[in-house]
Amino acid sequence: MAKSNKPIVWGPFAAGGTVTAFVTPVLILLTLLAALGHVPDGLTYEGMHGFASHWLAKLAIFAVITLSLWSSAHRLRSTFFDFGLRRDKQIATIVYFMAIIGALASLMFLYCI
């Protein structure tokens, strides 16, 4: 039986899942803190802007956003299937396309900083 090409979508999904598990809860907490007006000292707008200006930080931010988006897209694809929506090809195209759009958008924003 021929080997599947699934690793090409599963690889970034697994990486994204790991990143999401570690980073996303912290990001949510920080965002909530900022939204409630308690911005930690190191996370002021100027501080973050300066951080995101460095190419290494840009790379890290891009990796976190892209892998998380891809991971969510792939998980959504499996979830649709589990809920009985069997148009896997169409669903996969839509969710992966959305993740790629998000990745491109983050690339543009990071480029403009």
Partner: peptide, 17 residues
């Protein structure tokens, strides 16, 4: 074993429920 395990009907149908 990978011929079966890494095929479309193999491990990739698992969604880690």
């Amino acid at each position: 074993r990978q011929e079966e395990v890494a095929s479309g009907e193999g491990v990739w149908e698992c969604t880690f429920v």
